[in-house]
Structures are given as structure tokens and as C-alpha cells.
Write a protein that binds this DNA or RNA. Structure first.
Lengths: 211, 211
DNA sequence: GTGTGTGAAGTGGTTCACAGCG
DNA sequence: CGCTGTGAACCACTTCACACAC
């Protein structure tokens, strides 16, 4: 797969096209147009075509996109070179929800180790995954070659946890669910999901919706 | 508060400035500069100044921003006209995590009603909040004047739930945690948080990180 | 001198419009 | 003729650079 530079919004849409195609494949559809994809996901047809064209000419002019071919094509674009091992720090309610989240099952990654501070959890298995002390994270992450960590701890603990986790030198990416900006070594990729900010934005625009 | 049109990224940053200021206020700091704010949140100082200038000249040239004044100013910009009543549909692991999420406490809103399909949950209170059948949603939403609903149901059920919820005619905004695009009446504002898309993006850029 | 406020320039992503191919 | 692929036009957000107030 050649390496085309694509913007973050494009990657996000590619993921959504892939998901949609998975569903459509199951329904036995053979061909789909950019217009139809766009209608199903609320994007402009031209946006869909541009996104899909970044990785080669995959559609047929005058016809549309062959569903199964496009599905496999996107699968290859989004595929991982291998199965990522993932750690999850903070097994509170949110952490446990993430751990058990069905939309999160994938052949791309697997949650291999949990970390917490609660002595009642350390040393046990939760939903089948072993839980370690956060202070053992550097060792465990190295031993199990875990390169991605999800942080779902309370905001006060997030920076401490991020420091422990990056101390291993093994971690290349962090997905942060806590509502704080983390300071990280700059070779570590950070993505954040801030649940309450999204609600705040919704309420802000609701307040000003007349406009 | 006069109505200035601000972009979504700006609103998101305003929320983060407000949060930061809350912390900084507590630490007894009197004055802060755009440069310092930027460093703490990983934004450019010029970005911070532009964002803060949309709602009037609030800083002092040559000095910086008075922390408490700026905090209250942002509070007013982001404030709600009143306390929003919120419903939450889908009290699975994720729904319960949201319900109990501390970062979610606010004087802007309150989760007033839960909805589910599980007969074991309907009619009970969960973490102190009453749970109703999703099919009673139109009535309950109207009776309790609930205008915002959080959807945290499995993807297969999301559209059905969205239809039930908007049937009341009362709902103005939806925060969707399920990984599907919802079709909604176009006077309903939609924000989505897609947990697995964020992880997919992280893994995609990790794979291509050499670039 | 110092740090804000802001027009102007720059950057990046989206949409258009049409050429090109099936 | 229909629908894709794509340069060019457009639009929106970010960054710069400097006048201005303290």
C-alpha cells in the first residue's frame, strides 16, 4: 500500500465508509455510488469521491463502486501491519465499559493488560484480562510489548499515569479519555476523547441555535 | 451576552480554557498570559488571544489576563440560559459509566430519566435515576420537558431509539455514543462521540507514522 | 518593555465543475 | 450517457506581524 498523506477528517471518513460497506456487503448489494454513500453518511458525493480517490482509481466511471471490491480495498488501506497489544489504565466504570465494549472488538488489536491503583483489583482478572499495579506498568508494557495504552482514569491521576506509561519507552500511542491535556514525549501519538466537551458544545450551540 | 458566531474548534477551546482557569484559580494565581495558557494546553499563543477576543477585550495589554475575571467571563459565554434536563437511553455498561462519570457533573444539566429495553431495569432507579421503557420515551420526555438525550445503545438499536426519542417533538439535541450515523429531523442538533473511530485513527497514523 | 487585539497572509480541507472513461 | 476522478475555486480556521494600550 503506497503511502499517501491524508488528513485526519479523511481517515475518519474512510473508517466510516469501511463500516458502512461491511453492512452493505451483508445485504447482498453489488454496486454503490458516491451519491448513495454520501446520503447514508451525510457527506457530499464529491467528498466521498475525493476521499476514495486518494488510494487509486477504485470505482468504475458510469457505474459506481463495486461494493465488495471497495470494502476489501478500504480494509487494506486501514489495515494494521499486525495485531496491536493494548493496555488499559484505570478500571473504573468507564474503563470497564471500554473493556467490555462490543463496538471495540477487532482483529486489529487486543487489550492485554489492565492497570489500576486499587489493591482489590491488582492481581485479579477483570473480564478475563489481568490487572497490574500502575507502578509496574513500565515493566509489564515492556515484557508484553504493549505499544498503545488507553487512559481512563480520573483527571487528577491522568498525568501521573501518562508518565508511568511512557516511562517504559515502549508506548507509541495513547488514547486519552480523561478531560485533561497530557504532556507527553513528542514521539508519542496522542488522541483524546473528551466526553463532556462534546456535551458542552452541544449545549452551547443549542443555546445559540436561533442565530 | 452578544451573539458572536464562533467556529466549533473555538467553542471546544473555550471549554478547555474555562476548565484550566478553574484549576488555576484554585491555585491562587492572579494573572496569566496567552503564552502560558497555550503552553498548558498545547495551543499557539496567537490562537488563544484570537479565541478570547471574540467576546470583547478582556485582557490587559502588557499584563495578561486577570485569572478570576477571565474565568467568570468564559463562564458567562459558555453558560446555559437554564438547567437542561437530560435523558439517557441505554443503561448498559457504557450508559452506566456516563451516568456515574464525575467529569460530567455540572450545574448546566442533570440526567433526569433513563430509558432501556431490559424489563429488569424498567421501573427501577439506577444510581438514583428512574428508568423507563424506551417505548414510553415520547410521553416521559414531554412530561419532564427533557430536550437533550444521550444515546448509548448498541448500534443495531440506535436508529430505533433515535426515532422514539425524537417522536416526542420535545428533543432539540442528541449526543450519540453509538457507532452509526443517525437520520434525524433537521431541527435536532446532533453530536457524536465515536470511541472506536478514535482508536482506529490512532492506529492508522501509528502505522504510517514514518510518513 | 511587555503582552494584548486584530487585520492580513497563510494553510488546509471542502466543494465545484467538468474532462475522461466505461 | 452516467458516474468517477481531479484540478481549480472556494471557504474556514490558524498563524503572523505589528499597532496599541498599559
Amino acid at each position: 500500500m503506497k503511502d499517501v498523506k491524508v488528513s485526519e477528517p479523511t481517515v475518519e471518513r474512510l473508517v466510516k465508509y469501511h463500516r458502512l460497506l461491511e453492512r452493505v456487503t451483508g445485504e447482498g448489494r453489488k454496486v454503490i455510488s458516491s451519491k448513495e454513500i454520501g446520503e447514508m453518511l451525510s457527506y457530499k458525493a464529491s467528498q466521498v469521491r475525493k476521499d476514495l480517490s486518494y488510494f487509486g482509481e477504485i470505482g468504475k466511471r458510469g457505474v459506481g463502486y463495486h461494493v465488495d471490491r471497495l470494502y476489501r480495498h478500504l480494509g487494506a488501506v486501514l489495515s494494521s501491519p499486525r495485531l496491536w497489544s493494548i493496555g488499559l489504565a484505570g478500571v473504573g466504570r468507564l474503563g470497564e465499559a471500554i473493556l467490555g465494549y462490543k463496538g471495540f472488538r477487532s482483529e486489529k488489536f487486543q487489550i492485554k493488560a489492565l492497570f489500576d491503583v486499587d489493591p482489590a483489583k491488582i492481581g485479579t482478572k477483570i473480564l478475563g484480562t489481568p490487572c497490574y499495579s500502575i507502578d509496574d506498568a513500565p515493566r509489564v508494557l515492556r515484557e508484553q510489548n504493549i505499544e498503545v495504552v488507553i487512559i481512563s482514569v480520573p483527571s487528577g491521576a491522568a498525568q501521573y499515569v501518562a508518565d508511568r506509561v511512557t516511562a517504559s519507552g515502549n508506548v507509541k500511542g495513547i488514547l486519552n479519555f480523561s478531560p485533561v491535556s497530557l504532556a507527553l514525549p513528542d514521539d508519542v501519538l496522542l488522541y483524546s476523547v473528551d466526553i463532556s466537551v462534546e456535551l458542552e458544545k452541544l449545549l452551547f450551540y443549542l443555546k445559540h441555535r436561533g442565530q
